[in-house]
């Protein structure tokens, strides 16, 4: 077994207080078991970047007090309603928010992926987002007359964290068509992955499997975490646990209810 493989807690040791952490959207493979482990460990002061939006994961981390800054295009529980801990933390000023739009986060990570300092993006001109983002610039397109365009500085996260169906024993990770996971890994200094299972065999051996692989080159640590996206879905593996997500939305509506949720499902690991 490659040295990349660790226990879950060991794999997460590289995510320290104050880290800039990038995570995928609900449908992209969210490392929820790892998220619960980070909260149990008492992680603080994260700069959380969501590529491009988040649901339960961001709400849970914010409610648990692990986040100082969030850069996101949206945090929502989807059909289960607004993300209550996120909304409470923003309205009370407990966290700093850098409001973005989906393609801006994709593009800023692509800039890091390419090793260039910024990326231009269409749209945005005249949006209040630009007014609230002093780190974004509107310039005149140097190749055309009178064509304002927004520049976004590269986002270079310390760590990318996600959950995937499998990795082989060399640490190559199967991501299928969730290519934003590759973008995250390319952009981040380190990538930590949890997987449903270990694949016996070389995922880079055939064209069919290699096309869906994030190579071990980018991967710092892999830990096995069966049903590691629960209660969120993992494409091709299992659907969202609707009843659990509804219970979360109900409990997290109040601070006191959220504490009960943490006790029951994070600290006690009762339902894992």
């Amino acid at each position: 077994m490659s040295a990349i493989f660790r226990s879950l807690d060991e794999a997460l040791a590289g995510i320290g207080d104050g880290a800039m952490l990038v995570v995928p959207p609900e449908y992209g493979g969210v490392a929820m078991e790892a998220t619960r482990a980070l909260i149990r460990r008492g992680l603080r002061d994260l700069h959380l970047v969501t590529l491009p939006a988040s649901s339960l994961q961001a709400d849970l981390l914010i409610g648990a007090g692990a986040v100082a800054t969030i850069e996101t295009s949206a945090v929502s529980l989807g059909e289960f309603g607004p993300a209550p801990r996120f909304a409470a933390a923003v309205t009370s000023g407990k966290i700093r928010i850098k409001d973005a739009t989906c393609p801006a986060i994709h593009a800023a990570l692509q800039a890091a992926e390419k090793g260039v300092p910024f990326m231009p993006l269409r749209g945005l001109v005249g949006s209040d987002l630009v007014a609230r983002r002093p780190d974004w610039r509107v310039i005149d397109n140097p190749f055309a007359a009178r064509d304002p365009i927004v520049l976004l500085p590269a986002i270079r996260p310390d760590v990318a964290l996600f959950h995937a169906p499998m990795a082989d024993r060399n640490g190559n990770v199967w991501i299928g068509r969730r290519r934003e996971l590759a973008t995250m890994a390319h952009a981040a200094a380190k990538t930590v992955v949890t997987v449903e299972r270990i694949h016996d065999g070389d995922l880079l051996a055939t064209e069919a499997s290699a096309a869906g692989v994030l190579p071990a080159l980018y991967v710092e640590a892999v830990a096995a975490a069966p049903r590691g996206a629960w209660p969120l879905p993992l494409a091709g593996e299992y659907p969202r646990d609707e009843a659990h997500c509804a219970e979360y939305a109900r409990l997290a509506a109040t601070e006191e209810g959220f504490r009960r949720y943490l006790d029951r499902y994070v600290y006690a690991r009762a339902a894992a």
């Binding site: 949206a74 607004p82 309205t91 989906c102 749209g123 945005l124 001109v125 987002l129």
Partner: peptide, 18 residues
Amino acid sequence: APQVRFPGSFGSAYLYYV
């Protein structure tokens, strides 16, 4: 210091233009 916070802009600040 908002009275109500919504989820966020999603892709609107780009897709609305293009």
